[in-house]
Lab assay of single mutants.
Amino acid sequence: GPGLTDLFKTEKAAVKKMAKAIMADPSKADDVYQKWADKGYTLTQLSDFLKSKTRGKYDRVYNGYMTYR
């Protein structure tokens, strides 16, 4: 089956995709945050998933999740 690194890459891609969806349409934020909360994502995990070469690119999404939880 898929190894943990593959799983991480898949999760990371999914999280980034959802983060971009929030940035494009902030009204989606609560739905996405709820999904992440259901998956039990911690802020540390989210921070790892949303690492970007562009500093602060996903800060709004991260901060939103922090206040959501």
Rank of each mutant, 00 (worst) to 15 (best):
G1N: 09
G1F: 11
G1R: 08
G1V: 14
G1C: 15
P2C: 15
P2G: 12
P2E: 12
P2S: 14
P2A: 12
P2T: 11
P2F: 06
G3W: 09
G3P: 12
G3Q: 13
L4K: 12
L4G: 13
T5C: 15
T5R: 11
T5V: 12
T5I: 13
D6Q: 11
D6N: 08
D6A: 11
D6G: 07
D6S: 12
L7K: 10
L7R: 11
L7C: 15
L7N: 14
L7V: 13
L7S: 15
L7Y: 11
F8T: 06
F8S: 07
K9C: 13
K9E: 11
K9F: 07
K9G: 07
T10Y: 09
T10C: 14
T10E: 14
T10D: 08
E11S: 04
E11W: 04
E11G: 04
E11A: 06
E11P: 03
K12H: 05
K12T: 07
K12Y: 04
K12E: 07
A13L: 11
A13G: 05
A13V: 07
A13D: 08
A13C: 14
A13F: 07
A14S: 09
A14E: 14
A14D: 08
A14C: 15
A14H: 10
A14P: 02
V15Q: 00
V15H: 01
V15A: 04
V15T: 03
V15C: 05
V15P: 00
K16I: 15
K16V: 13
K16T: 06
K16H: 06
K16D: 02
K16W: 03
K17Q: 10
K17F: 08
K17A: 13
K17E: 09
K17Y: 07
K17P: 01
M18T: 04
M18N: 07
M18A: 13
M18P: 00
M18Q: 15
A19F: 02
A19I: 03
A19R: 01
A19T: 02
A19Q: 01
A19C: 04
A19Y: 02
K20I: 11
K20P: 00
K20D: 14
K20M: 11
A21H: 06
A21C: 12
A21D: 08
A21Q: 12
A21R: 05
A21W: 08
A21G: 05
A21V: 09
I22C: 05
I22A: 07
I22P: 00
I22Q: 01
M23G: 02
M23T: 03
M23N: 04
M23I: 11
M23C: 05
M23Y: 04
A24K: 13
A24G: 05
A24Y: 08
A24N: 11
A24D: 12
A24I: 14
D25Q: 04
D25I: 03
D25G: 03
D25F: 04
D25L: 03
P26R: 04
P26W: 13
P26Y: 07
P26Q: 07
S27T: 12
S27I: 04
K28D: 03
K28L: 13
A29D: 02
A29R: 05
A29G: 06
A29C: 05
A29I: 03
A29P: 01
A29Y: 02
D30C: 14
D30I: 12
D31M: 11
D31R: 08
D31C: 14
D31Q: 12
D31G: 09
D31L: 10
D31N: 07
D31V: 11
V32M: 05
V32R: 00
V32N: 03
V32P: 01
Y33E: 00
Y33K: 01
Y33R: 01
Y33V: 01
Q34E: 09
Q34L: 05
Q34Y: 06
Q34P: 03
Q34S: 10
K35Y: 11
K35D: 11
K35H: 11
K35A: 10
K35E: 12
K35N: 08
W36T: 00
W36D: 00
W36R: 00
W36L: 02
W36Q: 00
W36S: 00
W36K: 01
A37P: 00
A37I: 12
A37N: 10
A37G: 04
A37W: 15
A37C: 11
D38C: 11
D38V: 09
D38H: 09
D38F: 09
D38I: 09
D38G: 08
D38T: 10
K39P: 01
K39G: 04
K39M: 14
K39E: 08
K39V: 07
G40D: 04
G40V: 01
G40H: 05
G40I: 01
Y41N: 00
Y41T: 02
Y41W: 04
Y41V: 07
T42L: 03
T42F: 02
T42N: 05
L43K: 06
L43A: 07
L43I: 06
T44V: 12
T44M: 14
T44E: 10
T44N: 12
T44P: 10
T44I: 12
T44A: 14
T44G: 08
Q45V: 07
Q45E: 08
Q45F: 04
Q45K: 08
Q45D: 08
L46W: 01
L46T: 01
L46K: 00
L46N: 01
L46R: 00
S47L: 08
S47V: 08
S47E: 10
S47D: 06
D48E: 14
D48K: 15
D48R: 15
D48M: 15
D48I: 15
D48Y: 12
F49M: 11
F49S: 03
F49R: 02
F49I: 06
F49V: 04
F49K: 01
F49T: 02
K51S: 09
K51N: 09
K51H: 10
K51P: 04
S52Y: 07
S52E: 06
S52W: 04
S52F: 05
S52I: 09
S52A: 05
K53P: 09
K53Q: 08
K53S: 14
K53H: 10
K53Y: 07
T54S: 09
T54A: 06
T54D: 14
T54I: 12
R55L: 15
R55P: 15
R55G: 12
R55N: 14
G56Q: 05
G56C: 07
K57R: 06
K57Y: 11
K57M: 07
K57L: 07
Y58T: 01
Y58N: 01
Y58L: 03
D59I: 10
R60A: 14
R60Y: 10
R60Q: 14
R60D: 08
R60W: 09
R60M: 13
V61W: 01
V61S: 01
V61I: 11
V61E: 01
Y62R: 09
Y62T: 07
Y62G: 02
Y62Q: 06
N63D: 08
N63S: 10
N63W: 15
N63L: 14
N63F: 15
N63T: 10
N63R: 14
N63Q: 11
G64F: 02
G64E: 05
G64R: 03
G64W: 03
G64N: 04
Y65A: 01
Y65D: 00
Y65F: 06
Y65M: 02
Y65N: 00
M66G: 05
M66D: 06
M66E: 09
M66Y: 06
T67P: 03
T67W: 13
T67Q: 15
T67A: 15
T67L: 14
Y68V: 02
Y68W: 15
Y68I: 02
Y68C: 02
Y68E: 01
Y68K: 02
R69Q: 11
R69T: 14
R69W: 12
